[in-house]
Design a binder for these strands. Structure first.
Length: 472
DNA sequence: TCATGTTTACAAGCAC
DNA sequence: GTGCTTGTAAACATGA
């Protein structure tokens, strides 16, 4: 036994945690008391104290470092960013109650913050549901289908907890794959050697991943068979050209046990009465989990109850916008671009928007700028052309070129793909080569604040959420 | 034999 | 209270 342990530690030296051999696992993550000590601003690397504006590469570096992303050059799938508030719903820095051990569940004022890295911390159970873990593994594999063992391996490689845990979690994984209709088994071909079949996410359930959250909605049994509901209508748009969710599966959210939430009634009240984007203490939990409706986001922005993005959970808001818009704009495209909020594998999609990604292989590279860009493009897209010409006689930024968008030159889509949106648009539109746009974009150091200003302009130009919704 | 996959059962937490 | 979601455990079948 000792020998096996020694061998294990030789493979995973980070598993050597002094004094934790027999310690019970800390489940204090179920508490949201850290919220009392957690400040969104303090976790925002773009804020003063970070690398500072005008230094995007260092900003990104710091960002990824703090989020726990693997550095450039590694091919291994990244552990979900433990500190990515938008992605995981967990704080970047947890207060001492969360990580101070199993003896005390009473929240204490945060002492020096401790970064939780699920990849190396065997004591903290990742706050992800098994379904989310499966999706993460599928996404990280970059393959259209994965085997069960691939899922196992990815989870154990990226979550130290499961390396130590009893193997019963694997049973749960299998159970989840079998029971969860979102997962579809792909039988192995006869000429394919190996054991077991492959698994993929059923595209029919793509909208389970709204805002990157694996959401199970309370739906009627015929939700997915009915063709009359608006949900299905919207879903069909989301799924169209979205053959495999692994191309767009996002992992911002946490679908873990709900006991992680704070006061039930408090959250309810916050949801009902407050903007999902206004990071009040009451609704931070939802925001941090990415658990809010996009419609509400637009309602707030468009309705004027949210005058600026500066007070918002930037990452969540933008990644949500980017993700949602990205999916909704897929049309019939085969190369479904992954959502902007994806925390890993920047190769495919972010590779198409490298002007903002700085070629980071993993992480939220270019997230803010790209998300803003996508959201703004969406806003433009949904404005009648005449109205746009009226409101924007001159494009404020080359990236916001409406004609390019109409021609399928959306930066997050393939450059050469034919336009599928508004095909009735005249062909004589003067186009600016995308490469040229890209160069211009690179030359312009668009800061977040500037980006938000642009966003605000477009959003405030839009009239109502209904207008957007009608197009969606 | 073991990994894989299916199914059943139960409990906890939560939304309605 | 009811139903849904999630997690856990277990039994069983199948195939490499």
């Amino acid at each position: 036994e000792r020998e096996r342990e020694r061998q294990w530690l030789s493979i995973y030296p980070e598993d050597q945690v002094p004094g934790c051999d027999s310690a019970p696992l800390d489940d204090s993550l179920t508490s949201l008391h850290w919220l009392q000590n957690f400040s969104i601003l303090s976790a925002d690397p773009e804020r003063p104290g970070g690398a500072g504006p005008g230094c995007p590469s260092s900003q990104h570096h710091l960002y990824f470092k703090r989020l726990g992303f693997p550095r450039a050059g590694t091919d291994s799938p990244s552990s979900p960013p433990a500190g990515d508030t938008a992605a995981t719903g967990m704080p970047l820095y947890l207060g001492s109650p969360v990580t101070s051990g199993s003896e005390s569940t009473v929240p204490i004022q945060a002492s020096p913050p401790v970064e939780v890295d699920y990849k190396t911390n065997p004591k903290v159970k990742p706050p992800y549901s098994y379904a989310s873990l499966i999706c993460m593994a599928m996404e990280a594999s970059k393959q259209p289908k994965v085997t069960l063992s691939t899922i196992y391996n990815w989870i154990t490689e990226n979550f130290c907890y499961y390396r130590h845990a009893e193997p019963s979690w694997q049973n749960s994984i299998r159970h989840n794959l079998s029971l969860n209709k979102c997962f579809k088994k792909v039988p192995r071909q006869k000429d394919e050697p190996g054991k077991g079949g492959f698994w993929q996410i059923d595209p029919q359930y793509a909208d389970m991943f709204v805002n990157g959250i694996f959401k199970r909605k309370r739906l009627s049994a015929n939700h997915y068979s009915s063709s009359s509901s608006s949900n299905v209508h919207r879903q069909s748009k989301l799924v169209q050209g979205y053959p495999a969710i692994q191309n767009g599966c996002l992992y911002q959210g946490v679908s873990g046990k709900r006991k992680q939430l704070a006061s039930k009634s408090g959250n309810k009240a916050a949801r009902a009465t407050e903007s999902p984007l206004l990071a009040t203490e009451a609704n931070k939990a939802d925001i941090l989990r990415g658990d809010f409706d996009l419609a509400s986001v637009f309602d707030d922005v468009l309705g004027g109850s949210c005058s600026t993005f500066e007070d918002l959970d930037i990452n969540t808001a933008l990644s949500s916008l980017g993700c949602e818009m990205e999916v909704s704009l897929q049309g019939g495209r085969q190369h479904a671009a992954a959502g902007l909020g994806r925390w890993c594998d920047g190769g495919d999609v972010l590779g198409q928007s490298q002007h903002v990604s700085h070629h980071q292989p993993y992480g939220y590279a270019g997230l803010s700028a790209a998300s803003m860009e996508c959201a703004v493009n969406m806003a433009e897209l949904h404005l009648p052309q005449q109205q746009q010409q009226q409101q924007h006689p001159q494009h404020q930024h080359p990236q916001l070129d409406h004609d390019h968008l109409l021609q399928g030159h959306h930066p997050l889509h393939g450059f050469d793909e034919p336009a599928t949106l508004f095909p009735e648009q005249p062909e004589e539109a003067v186009l600016q080569p995308w490469e040229e746009i890209k160069e211009e974009a690179q030359a312009i150091p668009l800061t977040l604040d500037q980006g938000f200003g642009l966003c605000e302009g477009f959003f405030t130009d839009m009239q109502t959420w209904e207008r957007v919704d009608s197009y969606l």
